[in-house]
Computed example of a mutant assay.
Amino acid sequence: MKCPRCDSQYIVKNGHTHTGKQSFKCRDCTRQFVIAPRHQPISEDTKELIDRLLLEKIFLAAIVRATGVFPRWLQYYVNKKLRAVKRKVEVKSKKKGNLTIQCDEMWSFVGDKSNRQWIWLAIDVLTKEIGGVYLGKRDEAGARGLWDSLPTVYRQCAVSYTDFWSAYGIVFPKKKHRAVGKDTGQTNYIERFNNTLRKKIFRLGRKTLSFSKKLSTYMGAIWYVIHEYNASLSIT
């Protein structure tokens, strides 16, 4: 018999589990274990599959059925993963010059429908990268958060196309800000990405039972998809 953690053979009996199984303890690393446990460790292949499924509009209950993991473990794994996601946009380096971004905002809710959360987004028209992200309220502070989230090269050089929401005009520099209607087609890319987010994240459905109860996991799910989206553009 060997310790499953350190392969030591210095093993002693250590009582019984609540189901009556003999428990053992490693005297070298203090690991406690039983022979042939009912709940086996989750494999790395299964975790990679779960990571991919989180990028699709699939409920956690469906992931449980597809992978065979326990609901409680999956909820813990997903919460831990989403809390660790970076809350800062990552794009390829850009040279100073003629840059164009499109900006828009979309809403969903956390906890209940009275708690609206707005997602402010900016997309690079040329590379289709998401260049700015901010989650908050639909007010001047939200527009300021989006502006501050943009890499410096965009704030210095980019022409910004937005809708007529007044907060943009207050925060964005007037010389390079263009407020336009949907009929112009100047915000088509960002509006299309809004739809992409709703198709990939079940938490963003405005009429759904699968909404987020915690703001941290809600934000993590959005950032997780955005990081993967930008990374996929660099690969292609």
Rank of each mutant, 00 (worst) to 15 (best):
K2F: 14
C6F: 10
Q9M: 10
K13F: 09
H18E: 13
T19G: 06
T19V: 09
T19Q: 06
K25L: 12
K25E: 07
C26K: 07
D28G: 11
P41Q: 06
P41Y: 07
I42D: 06
S43C: 10
L53F: 10
L54T: 08
E56A: 09
A62G: 05
V64Q: 00
G68W: 00
W73H: 07
Q75P: 00
Y77P: 01
K81L: 12
L82W: 08
A84W: 00
A84K: 05
R87Q: 08
K88V: 04
K88A: 02
K88S: 02
K88D: 00
V91L: 03
K95S: 02
K96Y: 04
N98D: 03
N98H: 03
N98V: 06
I101A: 00
C103S: 01
S108P: 04
S108I: 03
I119L: 06
I119V: 10
L121A: 04
L126N: 14
Y134G: 03
L135M: 11
L135W: 00
D139F: 06
E140C: 12
E140P: 05
G145V: 03
W147Y: 13
L150V: 03
T152D: 10
T152Q: 10
R155C: 05
V159P: 03
D163K: 02
D163Q: 10
S166F: 10
G169V: 08
F172N: 05
H177V: 11
G181T: 13
G185Q: 05
I190W: 04
E191T: 09
F193L: 02
N195I: 15
N195C: 15
T196R: 15
T196F: 15
I201N: 14
F202L: 09
R203F: 12
L204Q: 01
G205F: 06
K207N: 14
L209R: 12
T217N: 15
M219S: 15
A221F: 01
W223S: 07
W223T: 01
Y224E: 05
Y224Q: 06
N230C: 11
A231E: 10
S234D: 11
S234T: 15
I235R: 15
T236A: 15
